[in-house]
């Protein structure tokens, strides 16, 4: 069990920050590398990945596993992921609870599944096959979504909780995504958090988004908003000192700004999780 004092805070590894990360060691506890960015034969991306990995723990986070697709699992992709994991030796390997393509066409988006018994059985079978292939448990992340299907029989949190037990996989809980989907689909984000089994949550994502008035889009191009920080504290109270990171994918700010934003996560975690005498 991770102690509060040992809780680790990370950032998404972005090429804009490679040099500063190398020049300013120790400001971040670990980095999350986007798996597909490093599924190349050689060159600068892998040079930097190896260089930064020498100094920091890493996790791998993918966007193309398409665990919920009805297409067969892409074994070439899985073989590349396994090879990358052997190179990086990540603490965890994660992807998203979604599908990303159909009939051989990649749509390059995290598309929501219908939360049905049929989909649950299908995804659970595939998770088991992926975990066998990779020789490790994976984490699946809840995605932001903009549509809900009439045919869904379960809530997203019921689906995710049931999947983690049935497939014996872990959860990467994206607190911003819960907030976004809660607004878009008019549910209580606290009910979502309360339904997730704490033992399964192995990583937390935080990010910013774009509010369109009638709906929120998960753009990862803004700082984390106050309401999401509040929800993060709620999540920490339930899940304990889970490794937490901030994702930024667009309008990438200076490295120092993200390090400062991550400090806020550290402060909130300290204030939320430490008893008064421990904090003193």
């Amino acid at each position: 069990m991770t102690k509060v004092a040992d809780m680790q805070f990370g950032l998404g590894l972005r090429h804009q920050h490679y040099q500063e990360i190398a020049d300013q060691p120790g400001q971040v506890d670990w980095f999350e590398a986007l798996s597909e960015n490093y599924m190349v034969a050689g060159g600068r991306p892998l040079v930097w990945l190896d260089r930064i990995r020498r100094d920091y723990p890493m996790v791998l986070h993918g966007v193309s596993l398409s665990i919920g697709a009805s297409d067969p699992l892409d074994l070439d992709y899985l073989a590349q992921l396994k090879a990358l994991a052997a190179r990086v030796e990540p603490r965890v390997v994660s992807d998203h609870l979604c599908f990303t393509g159909h009939a051989g066409i990649n749509l390059h988006d995290l598309l929501p599944l219908p939360y049905t018994e049929e989909a649950l059985a299908h995804v659970a079978t595939r998770v088991a096959r992926v975990q066998d292939f990779l020789g490790r448990r994976i984490l699946l992340e809840n995605v932001s979504s903009y549509v809900r299907y009439a045919e869904s029989q379960l809530s997203e949190w019921e689906f995710l909780a049931a999947l983690s037990e049935r497939a014996d996989c872990d959860i990467l809980l994206d607190v911003n995504n819960i907030y976004v989907s809660a607004f878009n689909h008019e549910f209580d984000p606290r009910a979502y958090i309360a339904a997730i089994p704490p033992a399964r949550v192995k990583q937390i994502h935080l990010a910013g988004h774009s509010h369109m008035g009638t709906h929120i889009i998960d753009t990862h191009d803004h700082p984390v908003i106050d309401d999401v920080w509040t929800l993060y504290a709620e999540a920490l109270r339930r899940f304990g000192p889970v490794p937490t990171m901030i994702e930024r994918d667009d309008d990438i700010p200076p490295y120092a700004d993200l390090v400062a934003e991550l400090e806020r996560a550290r402060r909130i975690a300290a204030a939320t999780l430490m008893t008064p005498e421990k904090a003193a």
Partner: peptide
């Protein structure tokens, strides 16, 4: 036909988020 409107947004607005982003 499979997608639900919400109180705040109709399904076409919501579906367009995906098509535009693609």
């Amino acid at each position: 036909a499979r997608v639900l409107d919400t109180e705040k947004a109709d399904r076409d607005t919501l579906l367009r988020v995906y098509r535009d982003a693609y």
